[in-house]
Design a protein around this nucleic acid. Structure first.
Length: 282
DNA sequence: CACCATGTTCCTTG
DNA sequence: CCAAGGAACATGGT
């Protein structure tokens, strides 16, 4: 379940497992997840390369490489789309139905699985060029944020999904951040007051930080960690004490607001669901 | 059968 | 050129 916090948690988990490891071979099971679709070039660039480190930028995973040849790629970029997962799988385990790319790394396999195949892997880093600032980094500042919002007549909820404004917010945390800021998702971005922009700026950072701390929206479930294998997956959280309770408005249509007991409403903006409390977010 | 789903990109319209 | 809206991508759950 990948927005910025989920990717951050995944990167932190994978990094120590992949750092310094050699990619001995690459199998592409679904060509369309490689962009551009130059499978040969992709495989040849990665086979024999070493993973130096793993980082996150927005919702992208950046695999820094020491290439086999001098002219080889220095980074592989991954994106999980809507349903992507990445994990290490022992070689004796069966590959999942929707394995898109499989890397042989030491005695294990590193699997990119994606049921809907909206995710991507690429050696072309141009996708990063249009991204706005990292919301949790020093480049995300309230002043420039406000200047950008002033230029847009889109509803603020829709504008928050614009990755060139600020990078990493997705459909869940857009609703959550607006609730925490007490701002209606319907207000045009340019109509927010300076006070509201300040509250929103803080709410974005708070919401994302909290989500990272908590583990992620739907937590990573670790299976066999410390045991016989290092498999893990994104699992449905148990209802009680699980991810439902961490979200204040998202997917809570018809339920009562945790602040005011009013009803949470669901509306559609830009063909995507928005959840909010009309009383707390006038 | 209907509608819904964590995201991005491409095409059209104004 | 730009902003904004909508379809497409593909599979599965309810």
């Amino acid at each position: 379940m990948p927005e910025l916090p989920e990717v951050e948690v995944l990167v932190r988990f994978l990094k120590p497992q992949l750092q310094g490891k050699l990619i001995s071979s690459v199998e592409v099971h679904r060509a369309r997840v490689i962009r551009p679709t130059f499978i040969r070039r992709f495989k040849e660039g990665l086979q024999g390369a070493r993973i130096v480190t793993l980082e996150r930028r927005a919702k992208y995973l950046l695999f820094a490489l020491r290439p086999r040849h001098q002219a080889g790629p220095r980074v592989m970029i991954g994106h999980l789309g809507m349903t992507g997962r990445m994990y290490l799988l022992p070689k004796e385990r069966l590959l999942p139905k929707h394995a898109a790319v499989v890397f042989e790394i030491g005695s294990a396999r590193f699997v990119f699985e994606d049921t809907r195949y909206f995710g991507r892997m690429t050696l072309d880093s141009s996708v990063l060029g249009t991204l706005g600032p990292e919301p949790l980094g020093p480049d995300f500042r309230a002043g420039p944020f406000r200047t950008e919002l002033k230029k847009s007549r889109q509803p603020i909820k829709v504008k928050l999904l614009d990755q060139s404004l600020v990078a990493g917010i997705g459909n869940i945390y857009a609703s959550e951040a607006l609730f925490r800021a007490g701002i209606s998702p319907l207000i045009r971005a340019c109509d927010l007051t300076e006070t509201q922009v300040g509250r929103l700026w803080r709410a974005i950072r708070f919401t994302l930080k909290r989500a990272i701390d908590f583990g992620s929206t739907v937590p990573l479930d670790f299976v066999g960690v410390g045991g016989e294998n290092g498999l893990f997956y994104y699992g449905a959280a148990p209802k009680a004490g699980g991810y439902e309770e961490r979200l204040l408005v998202y997917d809570r249509h018809g339920e009562s607001c945790r602040k005011c007991r009013g009803k949470i409403r669901r509306i559609v903006q830009a063909a995507r669901s928005t959840f909010f409390c009309a009383r707390c977010q006038p």
